[in-house]
Amino acid sequence: MTLSPRRRRRVVRVAGYVVFVVLILLVVSAADWGTLSEAFFRRDIAESMFPEAITVALRNTIVYTLLAFVFGLTLGLILALLRLSSVAPYRWFATAYIELFRGLPALLVLFMVGYGVPLAFPDREIPGGVYGSVAVGLGLTAAAYMAETIRAGIQAVPKGQLEAARTLGMSHTRAMVSIVLPQAFRIVIPPLTNEIILLTKDTSLVYVLGVTPTTIELTKFAGDTLNTRVNPTPLVVAGLLYLVITLPLSQLVRGLERRAARER
């Protein structure tokens, strides 16, 4: 039997769908759902976690994320400007910083800030207690990534924009602030939103600093409940609550990217 090219394409496509669905069904049916739901979906345990899961754990996760983001964005902007500076030592410093903090695990940096800073400056402490330490500890790493993103954004603004601004008599600084940076930030909003999503998940590392019942975040909260109830259902609850934060952000990124594509 000979098939026309169009028929052959259709047969191949349908065969692909069938294999795909069968594979998924095989995996799903092979699992022991009774035991699984007993372990991961215990309703009573899930219910016992509320309202603290939201009023304390979710809230702290969001606060840690925002603090680290603001600190990281500020430092990242400064690093991006240093990286583009005409002064060579500034560029070297920014490059060294970015390479160092992109290469170190966030957990390590957080730990060093939490325990190293008090040793280095015994008479001072980071303001805000554990909140401040988290902002700095996670922000230092985030800044390295954001610096590269912002640098790319600044370089994506056509050179003529700066020239036109300088031609009108603006100083270099004024031209950057009024003309170049506003356009650069428009370009980097989608990647920066991705950075918030990554930071949200990195807040699960905060436990290394030792948290109290009032400063606890989602992962540690779930872990503690797991230990007392000897059942992993809290992990599922925590996972769902992370998605409550990250899914709308992903949606936002997609919307922003669509809008950017339209404007271009």
Binding site: G160, A164, A165, L168, I179, P182, Q183, R186
Partner: peptide, 26 residues
């Protein structure tokens, strides 16, 4: 430069500003 107006081949209007803001910002 304040006393020298310049017009470019590629216009170089500020894309994030309206026409009026382009003319008023400097």
């Amino acid at each position: 430069r304040r006393g020298i107006g310049m017009v470019f081949q590629q216009f170089n209007l500020f894309g994030h500003l309206t026409v009026r803001e382009n003319i008023t910002i400097a």
